[in-house]
């Protein structure tokens, strides 16, 4: 039953992504200033949104693990699996953002990279979560989950500070398009296309996230079974 549900969901996701791609490439109008180039926004922005959401999932998982590790060990294991899945899939989406950003920047600004607030914050975020994954890989033994949860909290704490510090340093990235000041906002036709692509990428991200979560849960169960066998044998 579970497998059928996941299969059905995956089919819907694929359909959504095809629809999103069609909308982004063939339906959305050209941008007044940037022309065709602008279409990369339909990949860049959703990926960034998904990455940030999944890092938030990872933070929630870390906090959950630390608060439940004594009282509800089983629930804590689940929280830890969410923390790991969120960090891993988040890093993938963040990588997509860091790859599509320079491609866009090269044409729009004439430079591949600039050390502005949002670019630097995204890069530092990526570095922090890569270091989180490295810690999980290098640290051995049962304490790794606790240590990783602590690092997850530290990393998340750092993000607003990085953002503020870089804003004071310099900023080149365009001002917020949505909810910004005068002259912000998008044409309705573009907004609809961006909405479809947001939905498609979120659906795709969640599919991967849930699969990764299940794999990690299975790992945990296998590990605890092995430990139990070793104790009994």
């Amino acid at each position: 039953m579970k497998k059928i549900a996941i299969g059905l969901y995956a089919a819907v996701v694929v359909a959504l992504m095809i629809w999103g791609f069609y909308q982004a490439i063939y339906v959305a109008p050209d941008d007044a200033m940037q022309g065709e180039l602008f279409r990369i926004i339909y990949y860049h922005v959703p990926s960034a949104a998904v990455a940030f959401l999944f890092f938030a999932v990872s933070l929630a998982g870390s906090i959950g693990y630390l608060s439940y590790r004594r009282s509800h060990p089983e629930r804590a294991q689940g929280a830890d699996a969410w923390a790991l899945a969120g960090a891993e899939v988040g890093v993938i989406f963040c990588t997509v953002v860091l790859l599509t950003g320079p491609l866009w920047g090269r044409r729009a600004w004439g430079i591949w990279w600039t050390w502005d607030a949002r670019l630097t914050t995204t890069l530092v975020l990526w570095l922090i979560y890569v270091s989180y994954l490295l810690l999980r890989r290098f640290a051995a033994g049962p304490q790794v989950q606790t240590l990783a949860a602590v690092l997850g909290i530290f990393g998340a704490l750092d993000v607003p500070i990085v953002y503020m510090s870089n804003r004071w340093w310099r900023t080149q990235h365009p001002a917020p398009v949505f909810g910004g000041g005068e002259g912000s906002g998008m044409a309705p036709a573009m907004k609809a296309v961006l909405g479809w692509n947001m939905l498609a990428w979120f659906a795709w991200g969640i599919l991967i996230l849930v699969l990764r979560y299940q794999v990690e849960r299975r790992h945990q169960i296998n590990a605890s079974n092995e430990a139990l066998d070793a104790l009994e044998g």
């Binding site: 270091s131 810690l135 750092d158």
Partner: peptide
């Protein structure tokens, strides 16, 4: 590992 996890988090303070 210490350098790998310390430096990214230290970036804003370094800046």
């Amino acid at each position: 590992l210490l350098s790998l996890i310390l430096f990214p988090i230290f970036i804003p303070a370094l800046l």
